[in-house]
Design a protein around this nucleic acid. Structure first.
Lengths: 231, 231
DNA sequence: GAGTGGTCTAGACCACAGG
DNA sequence: CTGTGGTCTAGACCACTCG
C-alpha cells in the first residue's frame, strides 16, 4: 500500500477517535514532519480525506474536521451508494425474464446505444433475506456478450461479465428519479402499486470505454434510501 | 486561474471536438512537453478530467476518453446534481410557511442537531417558469440566524445566509428517497397525490464545520431526474 | 508579519501493460 | 525491453487568514 494511503488510514482512525467535528488538524507541515514524509505526500493523504468528505481545507486557516462518524467507512467503501452496491453487486440476484430488442431513436437517447443495435434485455430480481427489494433491467449489446442469455442465471452480473468476457464494468453516470411501479414490477416486488419506486438509470462501460450496459433499477421506496457522498 | 486549470480547460475542449470515446490521450510526458509545464502540473490538470468523469487512467496503458458529450459541462458545473442546484441555488424561491420547533430524539437522529435545540423551520417553494417544482423544508438553529424569520422572504437562502451572517453553507451528505406527497405538499406542488415526489435530505454546515441547516426537499417526479456524477 | 494551504518545478524510481 | 501511469522527495514561491 502506498505511503499516502497508510497515512490517510492512520489519520482517518485518529480523527474518528480523537477529534470532534469542528476541530482543526495539525498543519500540513507538522503532519508531514510527524510521519516523516514530504509535504506533498502528506497532502496526497489528506486529499483522500477531503474527497471522502471527512475534512475540509480552508485556505489560510487550516484543515477542519467536518465528519467523524463511523458510518463514514461504509460510505467510503461503496463509492457511490450502499444501495447501488446492493443493486449491482450482491449475489442475491436471479434472472426472471429475458428478451431481445432493437434500439430505436428514443431509446438511443436514454441508453447511449446507437440506433439499430441489437440488445439483450435481462431482468434480474434482487432480494435481501428473501424479501424482494429491487428489480433491474439490464440492456447489453448482444454482440459483446455471446452466450450470456443461455448461461447467466444468478449472482453478480458484473462479476460474470468479468470472469467470462474479461470486461471490467464501470459505472459512468447515474440518474435518479421516482415513479409508481407498473403492475409487473409491483408483482415482482410484492408491493402495492401505491408504493413509489426509486428509479436509478446507469450507463456502464468497459475498461476500454465502450458502452456495454445500460440498466434501469426500480427499488421499493419503503426499503431504500440512497446515500450520496458529496465532493 | 491556475495553470493546471487552464490546461484542463483546453484539454476538455479538445477532447469534445477531436476525440471519440475510446481514444487515448497523448502520454502525460507528451502533453507536459506540449504545454511547457511540469509533468506534475499536467497530471493535476488531467486529475480534473478524471474527477469529472471525462477520462479514465489505465496504469501502464494510457489515459482513455470515456465521455465527451456536451452535457458534461453542465454536470461539471453542478458538482452534485443539476437538480440540487435547482433546489438550493436558483432565485425562483419564496417562503410559504415558517414555524418554530424543538429537536426531539428522533429528529435529532435524522437532522444531526442536538436534542433540545430550538429550530426555525422555513418552507420554501421553488418554481421554474412559474410552475412549482419543488418544496423544501429548511431547519436552522435559531441562535445562529437571529432575525432570519423576519427578514428572509425570497431568493437564495444560502446566498442570504452568506451576505447577512457570513456563513458559507456547504452540503455534507445527501439521502435520496421517494414517497407519495402529503396533501399539503401536493397542494403546493399543484399535483396529484398519486404522483410520487423525490425526497432529498441534506445536512449542511458552515465553513467552520458547524451544522447550520438540515433540509428536506420534495420534488415532482414528473419534472425531475437527478443526475449524480460518479467518482 | 507569521502561519496556513495552493501551486509549480525538478528529478527519481516503481509498477504495470504489451510487444 | 519500452512506454505508460503511480508515487515520493526536495525546494520554491504565491495567496489567503488572522492577529
Amino acid at each position: 500500500m502506498a505511503i499516502y494511503q497508510q497515512v490517510a488510514k492512520i489519520l482517518e482512525g485518529e480523527i474518528r477517535t480523537n477529534f470532534k467535528v469542528g476541530d482543526f488538524l495539525p498543519s500540513e507541515w507538522a503532519l508531514a514532519k510527524r510521519f516523516s514524509v514530504n509535504r506533498h505526500t502528506l497532502r496526497r493523504a489528506v486529499d483522500e480525506l477531503v474527497h471522502s468528505g471527512m475534512v475540509l481545507r480552508q485556505h489560510g486557516r487550516g484543515t477542519i474536521v467536518v465528519d467523524n462518524r463511523i458510518e463514514y467507512s461504509i460510505r467510503k467503501r461503496a463509492r457511490f451508494t450502499e444501495s447501488l452496491k446492493e443493486m449491482g453487486l450482491k449475489p442475491e440476484a436471479r434472472v426472471v425474464r429475458q428478451s431481445l430488442t432493437q434500439v430505436d431513436e428514443a431509446f438511443s437517447r436514454d441508453s447511449g446505444f446507437l440506433p439499430g443495435t441489437n440488445l439483450l434485455e435481462l431482468c434480474t430480481l434482487r432480494t435481501v433475506d428473501g424479501e424482494p427489494i429491487c428489480i433491474i433491467s439490464h440492456f447489453l449489446d448482444i454482440e459483446l456478450v455471446p452466450g450470456l442469455a443461455d448461461q447467466y442465471r444468478e449472482g453478480s452480473l458484473h462479476a460474470y461479465l468479468e470472469s467470462t468476457y474479461g470486461y471490467q464494468v464501470q459505472r459512468r453516470a447515474g440518474y435518479v428519479s421516482a415513479r409508481l411501479p407498473d403492475s409487473e414490477d409491483a408483482t415482482w416486488l410484492n408491493c402495492s402499486q401505491m408504493l413509489p419506486v426509486l428509479v436509478v438509470r446507469s450507463h456502464n462501460i468497459t475498461q476500454t470505454g465502450k458502452p456495454i450496459e445500460y440498466s434501469v433499477s426500480r427499488s421499493r421506496s419503503d426499503r431504500f434510501e440512497m446515500k450520496v457522498a458529496m465532493l
